[in-house]
Simulated scan of single mutants.
Amino acid sequence: MNTSVLPEDSTTGGAARPLGGDGAGRSGPAARRRAVRLLGRVLLHAALIALAAAILVPFAWMLVSSVKRDSDVLTVPIQWIPEEFRWDNFTHIWTRIPLLTYLGNSLFLSVTITGLQVLTGSFAAYGFAKTRFPGRDALFLAYVSTIAVPWQAYMVPQYIIMERLGLVNTRLSLILLQAFGAFGVFLMRQYYLTIPDEISEAARLDGLSEYGIWARIVLPLSKPALAGLALLTFVNTWNDYMGPFIYLTDNELWTVQLGLRQFVGVYDSQYAMIMTGSVVSVLPILVVFLAGQRYFVQGIATSGMK
Rank of each mutant, 00 (worst) to 15 (best):
S4N: 09
V5F: 02
E8G: 06
S10Y: 04
T11F: 10
A15H: 10
P18I: 07
G23A: 14
G25Q: 07
R26A: 09
S27M: 12
S27K: 08
A31T: 07
R37I: 00
R41Y: 10
L44I: 03
L44N: 02
A46K: 00
A47D: 01
I49W: 11
A50N: 03
A50T: 05
L51S: 11
I55D: 02
I55V: 13
V57G: 04
A60F: 10
A60H: 00
W61V: 12
L63V: 13
S65Q: 03
S66V: 09
S66D: 08
K68I: 04
R69I: 01
D70W: 04
L74Y: 11
L74E: 08
T75R: 05
I78S: 11
I78L: 07
I78M: 09
Q79V: 05
Q79T: 13
P82A: 04
E83C: 03
E83T: 13
E83R: 14
F85Y: 14
W87F: 14
N89A: 12
F90T: 11
F90Y: 15
W94N: 08
L103G: 07
S106F: 07
S106E: 08
L107R: 00
S110H: 05
T112H: 02
T112W: 04
I113Y: 02
I113L: 03
G115A: 06
L119I: 10
T120R: 00
F123C: 09
A129D: 03
K130V: 08
K130L: 11
T131F: 10
T131E: 09
F133R: 02
F133H: 03
P134H: 01
A138L: 12
L139W: 09
L141Q: 08
L141T: 03
A142K: 00
V144Y: 07
I147K: 01
V149A: 07
Q152R: 08
Y154G: 04
Q158I: 06
Y159G: 11
I161M: 14
I161W: 03
E163R: 15
E163D: 15
G166I: 07
L167P: 05
T170K: 12
L172F: 15
I175W: 10
L176T: 11
G181N: 15
F183V: 11
V185L: 08
F186L: 14
L193G: 01
P196T: 01
E198K: 09
I199W: 06
E201A: 13
A202T: 12
A203W: 11
A203L: 13
R204T: 12
E210M: 07
Y211V: 15
I213Y: 07
A215K: 08
L219Q: 14
L219H: 14
S222C: 06
P224Y: 01
A225D: 13
L226P: 09
G228K: 13
L229S: 07
A230Q: 08
L232G: 04
V235R: 00
D240Q: 14
F245N: 13
L248Q: 09
D250E: 13
L253R: 05
T255R: 01
R261Y: 04
R261D: 04
Q262L: 02
D268T: 05
D268F: 04
D268G: 02
D268C: 00
S269N: 02
Q270R: 07
Q270K: 01
Q270S: 08
Q270M: 01
A272N: 07
M273F: 09
T276R: 00
T276Q: 00
S281F: 02
L283I: 15
L283A: 13
L283P: 01
L283C: 02
L286V: 14
A291V: 15
Q293C: 12
Q293M: 15
R294C: 02
A301H: 11
G304I: 04
K306Q: 14
